[in-house]
Simulated scan of single mutants.
Amino acid sequence: MNTSDDVPIACSNCFSDRGLRLDAERIGREELSGACPNCGATGFKKLPAPGVGALAHRFFVWGSMQRMRYGAAPLIQFNKHQQTSIDVAPWLAADVKLIERLLGVGFFLYEPRLWMIGEVEPLKDLQRTTKRQAIVDRVLSEYPERMLSPDESFYRVRISPSTPSDPRQYDSPPPASAGRGRLDSVRTPMLYASPDLEVCVHECRVRAEDDVFVATLAATKPLRLLDVSILLKEEGVSEFESLDMAVYMLFLAGKHSYKITRAIAEAARDAGFDGLVYPSYFSLLRIGQMPFQTTYGISHRRIPQYQDYEEAKAIPNLVLFGRPVSSGAVSVSCINRLILSRVGYEFHFGPTGA
């Protein structure tokens, strides 16, 4: 028996904007019989009310997401309590009116809560050299230790190593290349790796013409790692005071954050850890998720029923201090040439402005 949430109210043919139309094709359902109740067309993907809502969120909210130095926020939101007050391009105007009518909503410029754009006190302190160490000390004391056992395999990708079959080629980079990554420094060489091979390939910026090799690695003894990839469950603090939010934003930020992440790595090494587990910068692209999702302005990382799902969004990378292959802490069990056979892109659309 169909419920109102199952009954189509539109189809992909109803939309004029090419991006909305293509997104409606991806979201909509195949229904071979029956005309669209809105436009009367047949043979197009149908959308019930929840599908139109998902389409509007995907296009206008996620599609207007703007990244800041730390954090991100959408420029547009919609709900049933406001009338439309945004300017839209001529080719989008009819579609906005259609969605307004179908869902009874209005589109408006979103004023994000300031934590979404980096107004997080521990994050602000990390950016101040005089206050950084106190927050780094908190990271070392509040995030858990994780043991990397010898039965866990992980990968290291190299582009055009001079001797591909030599295990030493898959150790930490030579001194001339030190200090370029998110966590390594001239003083501390580090081996970057991941249990997720696709993330390794992406982070190495592999191109079609590259000669690529991958080593399968394993620890030869249990290694102590500081795990900053987890969702830190905090009590009695808001997003503005959250260490979890600060670290999450830090590892989603660009190169301007590297001095801070290197300070965390140096402190972990000085504290006797063998390395770090940290979230890949490409985690959200790997799983196709919107960053910094909220409900009524509250981060999903702060809502208990969403926390396991939020934590699963982080694809873990590993960094091991020193030269663990040369020292014998890590063994190379296998080396293969890696052949790129196919590359695909998944994408969706958004408005050109607000």
Rank of each mutant, 00 (worst) to 15 (best):
Q77G: 11
A73E: 01
D95E: 09
I99A: 02
Y70H: 14
L102R: 11
I99H: 00
G104F: 05
Q82C: 09
H81W: 13
F107S: 07
S85R: 14
L103M: 10
Q77H: 09
W62K: 01
W62V: 00
Q77D: 14
S85N: 07
Q83M: 08
H81N: 15
V61R: 13
I99L: 05
Q66V: 14
I86R: 01
H57N: 13
A54E: 12
Q83Y: 11
K97C: 08
G104C: 03
A56M: 07
L92Y: 00
V105C: 10
G53R: 13
K97G: 07
F60Y: 15
L98N: 03
Q82G: 04
R101P: 00
S64G: 08
A93L: 13
G53K: 10
F59Y: 15
G63S: 07
W91Y: 09
P90L: 09
F107C: 11
S85L: 05
A54F: 06
V61W: 13
E100I: 08
P90H: 07
L75F: 05
K97E: 12
V96Y: 07
A56K: 05
S85W: 02
A89I: 00
F59G: 00
R67W: 12
H57Y: 14
S85Y: 01
T84V: 12
A94M: 03
S85T: 13
R58N: 13
T84G: 08
V61C: 08
S85A: 14
A73L: 03
Q82M: 11
K97Q: 12
I76D: 06
Q66N: 14
D95W: 06
F107W: 06
Q66R: 15
L98A: 05
F59H: 10
V61F: 08
Q83L: 14
V88A: 14
L103V: 09
G53A: 13
R58W: 04
F59E: 08
V88I: 14
I86L: 10
